[in-house]
Amino acid sequence: MIRQGSAGVSASVLAQFVLLAVTWGASFLFIKIGLEGLSPTQVVLARLVFGAAALLAITLFTRQALPREAIVWGHLTVVAILLCVAPFLLFAWAEQHISSGLASIYNATTPLMTMLVALAALPAERPTPARLTGLVAGFGGVLVVLAPWRGLGDSGVLAQAYCLVATACYGLAFVYLRRFISPRGLSAVPLATVQVSIGAVLMMLAAPFIATQPMHLTARVTLSMLALGVLGTGMAYVWNTAVVAGWGATNASTVTYLTPLIGVALGVVLLDERVSWNQPVGAVIVVLGIVISQNRLLPTVRSRELV
């Protein structure tokens, strides 16, 4: 009985891990399709509004209480800007000039950016040889993806730089969360609901000034925005929380290794995007840098050393 129950839980977590990887990997595809009929600001507005609606529904259904302290809402406003509004806008703008697959590759640098910010901002984060080696390798991979030997004068290079600024925003947001929110021990889903909802409100307030371009809403564009908001910005938080609870934060973070693979594959298959040799090679180096920085190489050797 216990084994069956454990197997059932493990299968459920695995299913949610796969859904999470596919959804986050596909998010860049949804952005690209959304840009066929919407401006970048309209894509972000739709994403946050649909995401907030999904998370509010989940929070009400599960009867979880939202945080009440004003200081928490203040901190989550900062997080909403760094984790939602700013990077979403940067990625949406960038995908006007680069492929969805390339954007997904740059998104994989988020753990490296987070580590870099943590080393600078958190005294407890020590620059161990593994972390430094991983950072150097990871950003070496970024250079391979960027391909500076092809020249740095077109809008595609600027778009790639915007992607890196976006992942730097993610890094700042995660460290800010760790510093000011995590010690409070609040539930993940209500926190996600508040931060995405604040982001949606900020975008709605700004919309009359920055999202007034004509829209061309086709079924393809509308469904992509619904998927991006409800799944990629809503349900993904729930799946991620379940995977962390079932497998632990370290194992759950391996979803980062899969999202660029899925993003590139979907771009090639569904949008007929071209992939240069340097992009997958650079992506592999980036992932290798993450693996090194997290001390995941040669686990058998480390286990023997501890015996």
Score class of each variant (00 low, 15 high):
184 R>M: 08
6 S>P: 00
25 G>S: 00
14 L>F: 03
4 Q>C: 00
252 A>G: 15
48 L>N: 03
61 F>A: 15
249 A>D: 06
255 V>I: 15
164 L>I: 11
261 L>F: 00
229 G>S: 05
105 I>P: 05
197 S>C: 00
134 G>E: 12
149 W>R: 07
295 N>E: 10
227 A>R: 00
183 P>T: 05
32 K>H: 13
281 V>A: 15
67 P>M: 15
162 Y>K: 14
89 L>P: 09
86 A>Y: 06
68 R>Q: 12
113 M>W: 03
63 R>K: 09
263 G>D: 02
116 L>D: 00
166 A>E: 14
63 R>S: 03
249 A>M: 07
140 G>D: 13
30 F>D: 12
182 S>F: 07
291 V>Y: 12
46 A>K: 10
174 F>H: 11
90 L>I: 09
239 W>I: 05
307 V>Y: 15
119 L>A: 02
105 I>M: 06
66 L>H: 10
301 V>Y: 14
292 I>V: 05
150 R>N: 04
52 A>W: 12
96 Q>C: 05
185 G>T: 03
103 A>S: 15
92 A>E: 11
298 L>M: 10
157 V>W: 02
287 V>D: 09
128 T>E: 15
179 R>K: 09
191 L>M: 06
106 Y>V: 02
285 I>R: 14
54 A>F: 03
165 V>H: 15
264 V>R: 09
116 L>S: 03
171 G>Y: 06
139 F>A: 03
133 T>W: 06
53 A>G: 03
30 F>R: 10
269 V>F: 08
276 S>P: 06
114 T>G: 08
146 L>A: 04
210 I>V: 14
171 G>W: 12
86 A>P: 07
118 A>T: 09
260 P>L: 05
70 A>D: 12
63 R>G: 01
187 S>D: 15
238 V>E: 08
135 L>C: 02
3 R>A: 05
169 C>A: 04
86 A>C: 05
210 I>M: 02
245 A>T: 13
194 V>S: 01
234 G>I: 07
55 L>A: 01
36 E>M: 08
4 Q>V: 00
164 L>S: 13
43 V>A: 10
94 A>I: 04
233 T>G: 08
85 V>Q: 02
255 V>A: 15
92 A>L: 03
12 S>L: 11
15 A>E: 01
19 L>F: 04
102 L>K: 11
86 A>K: 10
7 A>K: 07
165 V>D: 14
78 V>D: 05
35 L>N: 05
71 I>R: 14
76 L>S: 04
181 I>L: 14
132 L>M: 14
253 S>M: 05
293 S>L: 13
227 A>N: 02
190 P>V: 15
97 H>T: 12
46 A>E: 12
256 T>D: 07
120 A>H: 03
274 R>Y: 14
160 Q>I: 04
219 A>Q: 15
295 N>A: 10
223 L>W: 02
295 N>R: 10
29 L>C: 06
61 F>W: 15
94 A>G: 12
286 V>R: 05
226 L>Y: 06
9 V>N: 13
223 L>F: 13
253 S>E: 10
233 T>V: 09
204 M>I: 11
211 A>S: 11
194 V>K: 00
68 R>D: 11
